[in-house]
């Protein structure tokens, strides 16, 4: 490994090592629990990043897809009696399929219309799950049991870690692939992308299906970890949360969703003592972020690094000029 590669991937590798050892460094059960949830939500936030950060379509339905994944898994294991892993894969595929159907309708609209349509869809899913007793167990919710192996918290931690890495890998590959180029073209300039031969509707729908698949995956993991499902797993507040995580971390960046989710989610957990006030602080942070740091933490750091680089160049240039004189 070259020195440059080491610098490039050093932080990532160090973080990965810490993540792998985490359950063995005397971390409390409570803390590990919080981290598992943050990991699950970060997958959902990455799902939003694909459709919102890279493709520019603000979906407020990610909470619904999270719920569809979770309830899909519950139904397929409890009612259909399928093997857990098969059920999980199917649940994610079903979520992507629902995404396809909703996408076909919703992508006929754009901008604010699209936001409102997706939010309405989320609302419908929530109300249906709450009221359709046979399907969901209604407000009482329902139990869900994973394979015995994942009864232990540590095992679930590694499972979530694995899927976080998978979601990261998908985002990373997409962001530098030909398919991802199409996403960014649609995000940055739709009419131009259209004139350059990019099928906009198709591109949006592909992005949305990938996004829904990941949201469904997060839902499955959430259901497995909690062991219990209630309609709040499909609440539209979840969609709001994911947007907040993404914006704080930085939309359209690889690590933004991860950084944002962990920062906000952990901060909120630690602020539990101050009760409901934390959501006020949260709301205020959100407003300030959008106005003053529209690129989020990761985007901001990137800008800072670019600025430092040019600043250093300038200083070096000045020095050279002085030496010359």
């Amino acid at each position: 490994m070259t020195a440059e590669n080491l610098r490039k991937y050093g932080v990532f590798i160090a973080a990965l090592v810490v993540a792998c050892l985490l359950p063995y460094i005397g971390i409390s059960k409570f803390m590990l629990n919080v981290i598992i949830y943050a990991g699950i939500f970060s997958i959902a936030t990455m799902s939003l990043n694909i459709i919102m950060g890279y493709t520019g379509q603000v979906s407020l339905a990610q909470g619904a897809f999270y719920g569809i994944g979770a309830y899909g898994l519950a139904l397929l294991t409890n009612k259909a009696g399928l093997n857990f892993w098969v059920a999980m894969l199917l649940a994610c595929l079903i979520t992507a399929l629902v995404g396809l159907l909703i996408g076909l309708l919703a992508f006929r609209t754009r901008g604010p219309y699209f936001i409102i349509v997706t939010l309405c869809f989320n609302f419908i899913v929530y109300v249906v799950i709450k009221n359709w007793d046979w399907l969901s167990g209604g407000v009482r919710g329902q139990k869900i049991a994973g394979p015995e192996f994942f009864a232990g918290r540590d095992a679930r931690y590694y499972l979530v870690l694995g899927f976080v890495l998978l979601a990261l890998f998908i985002t990373w590959r997409l962001s530098r692939s030909l398919e991802g180029l199409g996403f960014m073209a649609v995000r940055d300039n739709e009419p131009l992308a259209d004139a350059l031969g990019i099928n906009i509707t198709y591109t949006k729908i592909v992005a949305f299906m990938i996004s829904c698949f990941l949201a469904g995956l997060a839902g499955c993991l959430g259901a497995l970890h909690t062991g219990y499902l209630s309609p709040s797993s499909a609440h539209y507040m979840l969609s709001f949360n994911f947007i907040i995580y993404l914006l704080v971390g930085g939309a359209g960046t690889l690590y933004g969703p991860l950084v944002g989710t962990f920062t906000v989610y952990l901060a909120l957990e630690f602020m539990k003592d101050i009760g409901e006030y934390r959501f006020m602080i949260f709301g205020a942070i959100l407003i300030l972020t959008v106005i003053y740091f529209p690129r989020g933490i990761v985007g901001g750091l990137k800008s800072l690094r670019r600025w430092l680089k040019s600043f250093r160049k300038k200083i070096a240039g000045n020095k050279k000029a002085e030496e010359g004189a």
């Binding site: 919102m52 709001f240 907040i244 959501f279 407003i287 106005i291």
Partner: peptide, 22 residues
Amino acid sequence: SDVSAFIVAIGMLLVIEEAVRA
């Protein structure tokens, strides 16, 4: 963008709702 205003609105909504609850 449309999104920025929307997000500011969500922030505002959280602040108001929680303030009233408090």
